[in-house]
Design a protein around this nucleic acid. Structure first.
Lengths: 334, 334
DNA sequence: CTGAAAGCGCTTACAG
DNA sequence: CTGAAAGCGCTTACAG
């Protein structure tokens, strides 16, 4: 309905004076075609403004040109700009490679939910996962040979392609920064400890402590869940139980903001009395008062890396997991 | 490569003892098929776990089952969770209707950019636009008969389907709230005035002034651009030029936060001396100090409405533009 | 209400 | 290096 009659192979073949098979070869980069004939085909393509019909191509070749981006959660995840940003990075790389991004936001749940069925039914050439809560679907898809990329470190140690931020390094440098600025008693408010990222940030914190020759006092490790409320609640508890806390590493900016709110309410000076470091370098890190010292992760780059890993797999190239570095961004809070 | 051999019409037809045409009819809801035979087909489908091959279906029918979500901007827009949230609303509705969402994030620019070509080449059944900077592409696609939905009010008054928040009403109630709480001198920091939303919010502000029997003093209307920095800069200027300002309506929460930052730095009490209202009810409205009174817009519902308008058009049903109500959310700042 | 048949626009062994 | 031909799995007039 939409398009005015588009040219087909038949037309290109006729105007170039070759067979449709030859047109197909030229358009798919088969270099066995004689250069002169290839040139003629290319001319016809340019002249007629030909664009290949993806659907027909997909049916004949068995490749759909579609890559699913699966966010294993519900709509609410988009309250965090993280996912949208990663997705746009993925999308850009895929588009540059002639692939389309199909977005699916839905708890993946079991092995036979609708998303699982969809992915197994051959309607996409590959799938990129965010916020994956479990590896069972992954393992099942892996067996089918579907190219996969996970954003974040997988739970189990299968040989699935993944991209992640250096959470350990980030946690380490956040904690070290607090200590080297004089903080003696540094607490951590972790993210959802069911996620590998939260665990790795915690490990970085522990490593920094180890290097300092000290051990975090009991109660300095608070299990949060990445929410603003958790940041507030744990900061309250922390101040009650350990009035001499002088450093807080929150595993994301939102929880750091929660902590800042409590500190301000109690009239505790930041950074003079308590230093605070967040993680993400999201918008709120720049707009909070005081502005938040934080660990920047390059979210767009994360998406692009995921896209590139997918392309590599589709092309049968070798690939390795990608771990992106973090950067300490020093502002006013520590 | 991915899927193990899936059943086709041929298999369903054989096990049901009917022709492939009949299978097709049943699966496409053509109710001219005899109930008994339809039942047999359905049984075969269930038993074999048949799922229609979308690609083959698309090639034969000319309908791709794909809807483009086009965000006329670059990746940076995802710093604002607005787009991700709208997109997920759209995606959910489309998926419920057996359609897939193809995400394209790219400045649309001219009539023959790559996005324009893509949309014109019949690879999608429809397109939903966000953050559209101009209507020229729209008009050109409209002529091709491609079903379109715009999120936001179109610039020109073509008969394109659109969904939008009641920006006028929101601006009106924000301003009225400030006034009814005693503010006499209410300023507005507008959004990017090139967008229809910013203009409408301003109109609401002006209307509230009109109803109060007063006129906003010169300089109370500040042209911002939705950024944190604009909020800060305009608040500074405002306080310098009009020390007696006692109300500020910022056209989004981010600018309101900028204003709050300046007010705090100057030791001006909010809401005692200056009342502040934002727009969006985004995360930062809840986490700012003081918490921000703001105009909530239902972003997920906006996306769902856009999806529904698309479905209506594809089904040849009548549709009307959708304007979603806003809600005043009263917190501490006003 | 139903089926045989042509067709959607590509891709890909196969034979040369 | 190249073309004729079969085929991908559906849909849809058409004739009955």
């Amino acid at each position: 309905m939409a398009a005015p009659a588009r040219p087909t192979y038949a037309v290109i073949a006729k105007t170039a004076g070759v067979s449709e098979a030859t047109v197909s070869r030229v358009l798919n980069g088969d270099d066995s075609v004689h250069p002169e004939r290839a040139r003629r085909v290319q001319e016809a393509v340019d002249k007629l403004g030909y664009k290949k019909n993806r659907v027909a191509s997909a049916l004949a070749s068995g490749r759909t040109g579609l890559i699913a981006v699966v966010i294993d959660d519900d709509l609410s995840v988009f309250a965090d700009p993280f996912y949208g940003t990663v997705t746009s990075g993925v999308s850009r790389i895929l588009m540059e490679n002639g692939l389309q991004t199909v977005l699916m936001v839905s708890p993946v749940g079991s092995l036979d939910g609708s998303v699982a069925h969809y992915l197994k039914s051959g309607e996409v050439d590959g799938a990129i996962f965010f916020a994956l809560h479990s590896d069972i679907l992954i393992n099942s898809l892996k067996k089918l040979g579907l190219p996969l990329v996970i954003t974040g470190t997988p739970h189990s140690s299968s040989d699935v392609a993944f991209v992640d931020t250096d959470n350990f390094g980030g946690g380490h440098s956040a904690t070290k920064h607090l200590m080297s600025n004089g903080a003696k008693k540094v607490a951590i408010i972790t993210g959802d400890i069911g996620t590998t990222a939260a665990k790795q940030r915690l490990d970085g914190y522990l490593q920094a402590y180890r290097e300092s020759g000290h051990v975090p006092a009991k109660g300095l490790i608070c299990e949060g869940d990445y929410s603003f409320e958790a940041g507030k609640a744990h900061c309250e508890k922390l101040l009650d139980a350990h009035p001499d806390v002088d450093g807080i590493f929150a595993s994301n900016d939102l929880m750091a903001l929660g902590a800042l709110t409590v500190l301000r309410d109690r009239g505790i000076a930041v950074p003079e009395q308590v230093r605070v470091v967040g993680f993400d370098d999201s918008l709120i890190a720049q707009t909070s008062a005081p502005a938040l010292t934080t660990i920047r992760q390059d979210v767009v780059a994360l998406g692009e890396a995921a896209g590139s890993l997918m392309i590599a797999q589709l092309n049968g190239q070798d690939w390795e997991p990608v771990i992106l570095p973090t950067e300490l961004v020093i502002r006013a809070s520590a």
